[in-house]
Design a protein around this nucleic acid. Structure first.
Lengths: 219, 219, 219, 219
DNA sequence: AATGAATGAGAATTCATTCAT
DNA sequence: CATGAATGAATTCTCATTCAT
């Protein structure tokens, strides 16, 4: 309906940002288009020039979230070459992204089913690609002998669920762990046990490095 | 509004059974009271003699699900005394209950937020109690030296999420695992690594027993 | 539907008493049959064995009120022979009956229109008969030369509205007048001005009598 | 919900006009929003953009009536300086306004109780202000010696009820009096008796003036 | 392109009335 | 006769969507 692609981009972004917030707080069904318009600083009519219908807004909102996972993990791995380090970094990155998008992550669990099947699939595809990213990290560890042989697919899923749980069970976790503690404990539970002797050495040196980076050198 | 407690019990049950199904399939907001009435084989008005409002139906529906976890795991542990066996059985039981209530489990994730805060808390309380059940199983293992020291709380949560994931990610898992495989692989990933030597022996003998129980004796 | 006339009488009475109270407090439309049943200490079904429908309950409720006026004024006039005294007593009686049925009087103004025309007429007939009672008192005064010629019909209506207003404008009058003051002031405004010299003498002696009746004799 | 104040004004007026008519004919509870919308020539949804709820429509409808009394009497007194004439004119004006708003006046008596207490008060305030207007007219007469001392407050209320009764008892009055006769008789009953000799002269000359104005001069 | 007033289908909820027990 | 559970039509109110300006 609107031709200028730059404008389309901008308006959609503006509207989706409002929608993420509202959907996250109030839920998809209880949020009205008029609320979104108000928060986005536009008119209700305008939304229908950039989206087909309300479900369309939800779809792009969820897409934004799911794409965030997929797009934001790799930058965290840039320049990191060691498989064990990459895996740990990936897990930490996933958790921190979820932390930033906590409400939106919960929203994804709540509202994906409100999409019609075809679009639900697209969301699932995005999630699957992120899973494969993680699974690749696991596989790199096992292939190189840093991890003993495991069901890489299922282990990768544990990482994913571990990250998602930070949002899903935040009502419980918040009383027990900071994000950093959560990631550290998770590494202990879900990474360490599968490391080989070789792998343990790497993790130990990583922790030493982190330690010295965190606390300024003594001498 | 209706006095006979037996009738209240029966009608509520009848209505909730219809509601679980519909809410699970269509979602809370998209299911209408009329649909529930039709499926339950009653009139719309009747529902309001047994529930305050639609949210009330949702609450009791979710309560039913959450209580199922809490109530149905213990019977599976009856007569099982060894801590490692109890833990494994608890995990398997949780997964199989989730399997039976797969749609309802997803519903709980989708719709708990549609409850007003006070009731949401009651649902969370139920979940917490189930978690503690699991955590108790873990603690029994570590205390008795069958498991090395771990963060019992967080490990218990991994079990819980592992069970829930069977429902939440069934769209993905169904293509890879049967329920039995899922439980077996989960045990390998989330129980075995934490067992001490003593613990490993127990697990091994359990598996042997299961093996011989499953396949009829050869000779 | 029920044959025993004594029972019909009793049950109707029981139900109407509950209805007067509820209709008066909450209004006709906002009161439910179930509320009436509860207050009357019966079941909802029972009401339909003694009344055709809800409107029927209203009709008999209003009839009770309107009949009260008609039936309770005459006893107050019994043994009172002087026309002026009869008129004053009638006015005072009407006001005191309205005072007792204050809410019900307001109800009559609110809800008569909710009756179907035919029954509304019956209510109006009852009111008209009461009006004629009052008009008769006025006419007795004018005929006997205690009052100068007036529009008896309209003056009678002033008395009626004066009595009704005690209920209708009680929200305002309560802050200014007691019932006794109200009646006394009303007599001054709506009776005295029309009295002839002869009539004034009567009223004066009445007041003197009342005075001495009210305050115990001095000597 | 709608921003343009001119439009709000116009739409509210349009809707209230429909509501007055329907509420007056059918009563508040029996009139549906759909009916109002149809008669107002709008959609049901629209009504909720200009009114909070149905009670809101009733409130503004009654407010319109009550304000009419307050606002329309003074214009009738403009340029009229003599206290007795002002009082008579006020009474006549009140009656003629009630005559025009006959159904709406009855509506006010029927439905004010359907408002929540806070708004009921606002309606009563409006009525009280009108009463004070009338009371002021009475007081001007007594102060200037055109009327003998009376309970001005209560007398003013008689005037008010006299005017209201034209609507409330129209079912009876219509068979006896035209509006003009009603006002003339009312003046005889409720004004004349309280006039002093001075006052009577004024009233007589007023009537003479009216007479000659009404019937064209003979010669 | 943008606006926001208007629409009307749809949903929750209520309650007079019925009827099996 | 009495009960009270069951019914379902009717009503208020909401909100996604449209469209004239």
């Amino acid at each position: 309906m609107v031709s200028d692609p730059r404008l389309v981009e901008e308006r959609r972004r503006q509207i989706i940002l409002a929608a993420v917030e509202l959907f996250s707080e109030e839920g998809y069904h209880t949020t009205t288009i008029q609320q979104i318009a108000r928060k986005a600083g536009t008119s209700t009519g305008l939304i229908y020039q950039y989206f087909g219908d309300k479900e369309d807004v939800l779809f792009l909102t969820l897409k934004l979230v799911i794409d965030s996972y997929e797009n934001e993990i790799p930058p965290h791995l840039e320049g990191v070459s060691h498989p064990v380090e990459r895996l740990c970094k990936a897990l930490a990155a996933y958790c921190s992204i979820v932390d930033r998008l906590r409400d939106a992550t919960v929203l994804a669990y709540r509202s994906t089913m409100s999409l019609r099947a075809e679009r639900r699939s697209l969301i699932k595809d995005g999630e699957t690609r992120t899973n494969q990213l993680i699974e690749g990290c696991v596989r790199a560890c096992t292939s190189a002998g840093f991890m003993r042989p495991v069901n890489e697919h299922l282990l990768a899923y544990q990482y994913v669920m571990f990250a998602h749980s930070w949002a899903l069970k935040h009502w419980s976790y918040r009383n027990r762990y900071t994000l950093e503690e959560y990631v550290a404990e998770g590494t202990q539970l879900l990474v360490e046990p599968f490391l080989t002797a070789k792998g343990h050495l790497v993790l130990a040196s990583l922790r030493a490095a982190e330690e010295s980076a965190a606390s300024p050198p003594v001498c």
